[in-house]
Design a protein around this nucleic acid. Sequence first.
DNA 1: CTACATGCAAACGGTTTGCACGTGT
DNA 2: ACACGTGCAAACCGTTTGCATGTAG
Lengths: 144, 144
Amino acid sequence: MKRDIKKEAFREFIAREGLKSTRQRDIILDFFLSAKRHMSVEELYRGLRARHPGIGYATVCRTLKLFAQSGIAHEIHFGDGQTRYEHLVEGEHHDHLVCTVCGTIAEFENKTIEALQKAVADSHGFIIRSHRMELYGLCAKCAK
Amino acid sequence: MKRDIKKEAFREFIAREGLKSTRQRDIILDFFLSAKRHMSVEELYRGLRARHPGIGYATVCRTLKLFAQSGIAHEIHFGDGQTRYEHLVEGEHHDHLVCTVCGTIAEFENKTIEALQKAVADSHGFIIRSHRMELYGLCAKCAK
DNA sequence: CTACATGCAAACGGTTTGCACGTGT
DNA sequence: ACACGTGCAAACCGTTTGCATGTAG
């Protein structure tokens, strides 16, 4: 199962870097992996806090950064001043449909677009390291 | 000339909203239109400050927001915590190639990608209001 | 026993706001 | 004259950091 692969990957990262496996990190990782994707730090913090009142905001921030470093998660910004994290499904990449009314975020992937991005970059002599693409507007529900 | 069309558009906006035309707004607009696109608030502020020492940061922020409201400019965020503004060329839309080494931002436009975005959105019943697409990596210079 | 992790509170960085004073209409 | 604009400093908001204490290895 995906979840366990990530846990394993994070465990390895922790070991490799000489860091420590702690109760908090386990709790945060569990919650993060089981929560919906694209959670903001604040949402994650509140969710965690509900079950584990002692946990600190700073710890959540620090741990999420570790997830990003370890490669199991990715930091995203939608321009609303909130940092979000999404868990990564290995090599896969996807982009976002962001509903500006209800805030729902859907994902999509389109190989043709990615190929065209590559072509555009090539024509500028530009080497793509990463990209982001977000479509903002009304989701099916809110469009009605 | 483009510049004058924008000045005119802003003047109209000011009038329509019952706002006032002031020395500062003129200065900021001039500087903004003549500066390179994608300037951060900080860069604009420093540039303005060099010639007009009295100008306040808050005024620059407020005025840039007005530009955005009036439709002559657009706020953009590249996830580095800085707000940038770019002046809009009417209906045109373009996307960005951001060099992560030297910070240079190039623009491109690709109708095929836009059509595909529309297709993706349609297949989700999603109505696009706006979008953003940024390719991050190394520009031609930095790639060498 | 040592180094890393935690929770708290204070600091931070960019942006926004409150307010007394200035200025366009 | 009145309403809107300005500059400054203080507030703000999400995030990060310093520090004393806790805990994994």
